[in-house]
Write a protein that binds this DNA or RNA. Sequence first.
DNA 1: AGATTTCATCGTACATTTGCGATAAACAAA
DNA 2: TTTGTTTATCGCAAATGTACGATGAAATCT
Lengths: 112, 112
Amino acid sequence: MSRTTAKVVYSADEKQLATFAKAMGHPVRIQILKLLNTQACCYTGDLTDSIALAQSTISQHLKVLKDAGLIQGEILPPKVKYCLNQDNWPVARRLFIEFFNFEPSQPCNSDS
Amino acid sequence: MSRTTAKVVYSADEKQLATFAKAMGHPVRIQILKLLNTQACCYTGDLTDSIALAQSTISQHLKVLKDAGLIQGEILPPKVKYCLNQDNWPVARRLFIEFFNFEPSQPCNSDS
DNA sequence: AGATTTCATCGTACATTTGCGATAAACAAA
DNA sequence: TTTGTTTATCGCAAATGTACGATGAAATCT
């Protein structure tokens, strides 16, 4: 421990990107997001019909997406209508697109 | 169970996207990918120096990224040089960009 | 051969995720 | 009020993820 190497701490953007990515890390949740991105909004019941998982499990996946800030739910008794989170979806899009659109300057050089 | 509702099975692309996203679901792994995207390649030791985690933990994160197909390791004794996976990185980029660049046709209509 | 460097893997501990059925909460309809 | 509909939450079990130190494997250098 003689060398005081400055350990890097992740930036807010990196943490945010990881949070979004983690929430997207399940096929069912990708499917839900894809659906919401395609057809504006849906109810939990729509998903229960089209996805072969228990209602409680789907509700849980919705919670993961909601906690990550990717979707939002509007209570419309007796149903709940889900949409993409209007504030955060554009943020997620920006973070991912920036992340993947970065082009390296040089191909692959080794020096150390 | 009278209604035979066709339960949707995720497409290969959806599964692939979820796999990539899952691997990206940790700030350290985002940081590693960012580094590799910026500066072509690196050795495990470089990461051990700059990230405040045990060497074994970093090696584990590298394994997650390698198993997901996002990076590849070239054994260059006594070191191992990591780069983005040349085959899959463009695939990941395409999947994410397609996913986020889809624009819905209508804002939000409810009918059912 | 012995010591060193670099990295992966093993074993362990704890936390989180995933899935289910059962139950609760909120409201509409009879 | 009772019944039905819709959704969230609880409790549980199994699997997976995260982090660490210790150990092992492979190659280099004395």
